[in-house]
């Protein structure tokens, strides 16, 4: 099957961010992670289940007038590990960011263990180490291996 150029589905933006190669079906979760809901002001273009040479199908999200920062990019990595992020200024890609699954995620994911100290009124943020097996809670050692989206705060 011939690939449809994404440009036909989603028009170019002048300034903002294009998130490409999102795991098919995860576009709306990506927006959720970024805190973009129906009530926010961003002008959005979303394409889902776009044919992709490498991924079979993928989703694309374009957000006008907003440049994602590294921390936001890394949150996306949780659900769309192959996503690529292009920062657009005056119609040109000025910066490409690959998502990076590494390091420590603070305040991004809630620990599913009800007995975990991070689920109390203590003055701390949840802390997870990103490992090959999944997300590892630095407080109680719980490992989240699947359905990570549902644990995102």
């Amino acid at each position: 099957m011939k690939q449809t150029p994404p440009g036909l589905l989603v028009s170019p933006i002048r300034d903002g961010t294009v998130i490409d190669h999102i795991t098919a079906g995860e576009a709306l979760n990506v927006l959720r992670i970024l805190g973009i809901t129906g009530t926010t002001e961003e002008c959005l273009s979303i394409a889902t289940n776009v044919a992709s040479k490498h991924m079979g199908k993928k989703d694309i999200v374009k957000i006008e007038k907003r440049e994602l920062v590294k921390e936001e990019v890394n949150r996306i990595a949780l659900i769309a590990p192959r996503a690529t992020i292009n920062i657009i200024r005056n119609y040109l890609v000025t910066e490409k960011k690959g998502v990076e699954i590494s390091g420590i995620l603070r305040g991004v994911v809630r620990c599913p263990n009800p007995g975990c100290i991070s689920n109390t009124s203590e003055p701390i943020e949840s802390s997870f180490e990103v490992t090959a097996a999944g997300l590892h809670c630095l407080y109680c050692d719980t490992v989240i291996t699947k359905d990570i989206t549902s644990h995102i705060i």
């Binding site: 100290i117 109390t120 809670c137 407080y139 109680c140 050692d141």
Partner: peptide
């Protein structure tokens, strides 16, 4: 402490 992770905190 009864909560997991209390000592780390």
């Amino acid at each position: 402490h009864p909560r997991e992770g209390a000592a780390r905190l």
